[in-house]
Design a protein around this nucleic acid. Structure first.
Length: 700
DNA sequence: CCTATATGTCATGAA
DNA sequence: CATTCATGACATATA
């Protein structure tokens, strides 16, 4: 009965939703992971490899593959592992560490229940199994999830194909006897036992050991086989591993696992209110989620209907993947109510299961839903999980459906505000244009900028522009999106943008890769959305407005061959092609300008260095010259002294001293020294200088 | 308000 | 001939 403290975390390449279920006093911890596929590809294939099945994964809707591997994506056409699409190292490691089971693209973005760990996993397992049994024998498939029901229909592909297919598979599958699982009463273990098992659940290795004790010999064999496979994969390059992944995915898995979908779980929980769901807590969103996090991390706990919780996740999912199709599948009333519910009303919490089920305890965070709504939500979840969400990602639809000439024209007509900052700087643009035209949400600010002004816009406006979907997500999904992207980094967002942007209506507040690549920025709340969009460059916003399915960074950095093939591979309007080329040209020129300035700066710095060096050299030369002059003067003085010394000793024929003013000493070529009258010396000098002048004149 | 600096963009020419 | 690069010139934002 106690509300359980929920927590959310978004880390690395995964969004992680942890849900604590309180089931008849037993606690079940469901971990949901939302994995965003790589940016480069339309997600025709999303394959993940998982880890060893264990009791902690008993509730996994996806039958444990029996082996653990690594995540990877396959190229949609060649079905070959695409290294370029492979998750980046960290994501890969995280996925691997999480032990995510095979998730096909048909499951879409890897929704899965990763583990049932907290509290008494067995108890939860038994409870759910019992509930499922009473709900129509589906519980058997619950067990089948990882309890390796012998003979269970463990074809992963079947379970992957669709939720309905999964259900059918479960119906076909022989029910796994719940005897293997302790019943609810038997699971009323003590708290230390709960803790112990919780710890064990956390420890994957112990999980595996526990699992190995339980699984049948057949399952064990399969596990070994898969482990061998995984070991092989681990030694291979990523793309080889992905290749292996593909082959794995295409073959039936174990043949023992029973398909199980989240919907089953939801229905079970919903159909057994007296037994199953007392309260599900949600929250503890990652720190990036700002106020949500604040609320959720507060001492208060919140009960929430499970399907609501899932609905919440789906909303998040939508926010992240920006898929308006799923958006509009939702009941608009529900959405509106969601949108209008202040998120911070979460502060109330309810212990009454009925109230919990009615969703009143989580108004704002999740919409109040009745049973029908819950079912719808569950269906929506399944829909969201459906492959079709991400299918038909083609630019044809982009060009024909979502393209808004008004928006684009206004975008490009902006009064030469070359700087993206200038475009975003004026929040008044929305309000002004709103006053002028009800459709003017599509001006650049409205179409792309979105931001905090959204709150001031009516939902009609927003819904008309698709942004309506985000009216509420602006506090929830959008934040999640931001937080997620903050953790996922460029790759993730590029993926999102790449695959879904062209399905968006103009005012969808998604962002391009750059703006969502910075974790620091992502930590802001919705009230900073305008800041986020402000960080978009003009080209980024234009690309968004035209639904260019590539990130600006991609467009700019792509090799020319890839670029051309990309342009030819996708159906793009002339406007889009033109924009893409302009983006590429501008992007490259931007880089070139940066390099040029850097170079120029280097040149200037070098020149400054040269100037300094030359100045130093000049000073040195000055000093040397002074020294030389000094030495010359000294020599002159010495010569003068010597001269007078010599003359003082000279005597003429009559023994009189020779006047140095009348005579001079002259050295002849043979080394003899002559005393010559100065008149002759001066006249001789004049003649020589005249000769020298003539010579020089001749040379010239 | 003015100035200096940083940055993006365009035009142009060279490679 | 298309593309890329380098660079001067200009516009704008910002400190």
């Amino acid at each position: 009965m106690k509300p359980l403290k929920p927590w959310w975390s978004a880390g690395g390449g995964l969004l992680h939703l942890s849900i604590l279920l309180s089931l008849a006093g037993r606690h079940v911890d469901l971990d949901l992971y939302l994995l965003l596929p790589p940016p480069a590809l339309p997600r025709d294939e999303l394959l993940l490899l998982g880890g060893p099945a264990s009791s902690a994964h008993a509730l996994s809707p996806f039958p444990a593959s029996g082996g653990w591997g690594r995540a990877g994506w396959l190229h949609p056409k060649s079905r070959e592992p695409d290294p370029a699409a492979a998750p980046e190292g960290q994501l890969l490691r995280e996925v691997r560490a999480l032990g995510v089971p095979f998730i096909p693209r048909t499951r879409v973005d890897a929704w899965l229940v990763h583990s049932v760990a907290a509290g008494d996993a067995d108890t939860a397992h038994g409870l759910l199994g019992a509930a499922a049994s009473s709900a129509g024998g589906v519980g058997a498939s619950l067990d089948g999830g990882s309890q390796a029901a012998p003979g269970g229909a463990g074809d992963l592909r079947a379970s992957q194909s669709s939720p309905l297919a999964a259900e059918e598979e479960e119906e076909k599958a022989p029910a796994e006897p719940t005897a293997q699982v302790p019943d609810a009463g038997g699971c009323a273990s003590e708290e230390n036992e709960v803790l112990r098992e919780k710890c064990e659940a956390v420890d994957h290795s112990s999980q595996q050991e526990e699992n190995e004790e339980r699984v049948s010999a057949q399952k064990e064999k399969s596990l070994q086989q898969n482990n061998e496979d995984e070991n092989k994969i681990a030694d291979k390059p990523d793309w080889e591993a992905e290749k292996t992944t593909e082959s794995r995915n295409e073959r039936p898995l174990n043949g023992t696992d029973t398909s199980f979908s989240l919907e089953d779980l939801f229905q079970l929980l919903s159909s057994q209110p007296e037994n199953s769901l007392e309260g599900i807590s949600l929250g503890g969103i990652s720190p990036l989620l700002g106020s949500i996090n604040d609320v959720m991390n507060s001492s208060a706990h919140y009960n929430v209907n499970f399907s609501q919780a899932i609905s919440h996740d789906v909303n998040l999912h939508e926010a992240m993947l920006l898929c308006p199709n799923s958006t509009f599948r939702r009941d608009p009333v529900t959405r509106t109510s969601q949108a209008q519910e202040p998120f911070l009303q979460l502060t109330s919490h309810t212990i009454n299961p009925e109230q919990t089920l009615s969703g009143t305890s989580l108004t704002g965070f999740l919409p109040p839903v009745d049973n029908q709504t819950r079912n719808l939500t569950s269906q929506d979840l399944l829909y969201d999980l459906d492959v079709n969400i991400f299918d038909e990602i083609n630019l044809m639809s982009l060009a024909t459906e979502d393209f808004n000439p008004m928006e684009v024209s206004q975008l490009f007509e902006e009064p030469d505000s070359d700087s993206g900052l200038s475009l975003n700087s004026s929040h008044n643009s929305i309000s002004v244009t709103k006053s002028n035209s009800s459709h003017s949400v599509y001006d650049e600010e409205g179409a792309i900028g979105y931001s905090s002004d959204l709150e001031s816009l009516s939902h009609h406006d927003l819904e008309g522009a698709v942004g309506g979907y985000y009216a509420e997500p602006s506090k929830l999904c959008h934040m999640d999106h931001r937080s997620d992207s903050g953790f996922h980094g460029d790759l993730t967002f590029q993926h999102v943008f790449h695959n879904h942007t062209y399905h968006l209506q103009p005012s969808a507040p998604e962002s391009t890769s750059e703006s969502f690549s910075w974790p620091g920025k992502s930590q802001k709340m919705s009230r900073y959305l305008d800041d986020t969009d402000r960080n978009l460059s003009r080209d980024e916003r234009r690309a968004k407005a035209l639904h260019i399915p590539f990130s600006v960074d991609e467009i700019v950095r792509m090799p020319v061959d890839s670029f051309n093939s990309m342009l030819s591979r996708y159906y793009l309007t002339d406007l889009q092609v033109s924009l893409i080329r302009d983006i590429r040209r501008r992007g490259k020129n931007k880089v070139a300008a940066q390099n040029c300035r850097k170079r120029k700066l280097d040149i200037i710095l070098n020149l400054e260095d040269d100037v300094c060096n030359l100045q130093a050299k000049k000073e040195t030369l000055k000093r040397e010259r002074a020294q030389c002059n000094k030495a010359i003067n000294l020599m002159k003085q010495k010569l003068h002294d010597l001269y007078h010394d010599v003359f003082s000793r000279l005597r003429d024929d009559q023994g009189r001293p020779v006047n140095p003013n009348q005579y001079a000493l002259q050295c002849s070529h043979d080394g003899s020294v002559l005393i010559v009258p100065k008149e002759l010396v001066t006249s001789g000098h004049k003649k020589e200088t005249q000769k020298g002048k003539r010579k020089s004149e001749r040379r010239n």
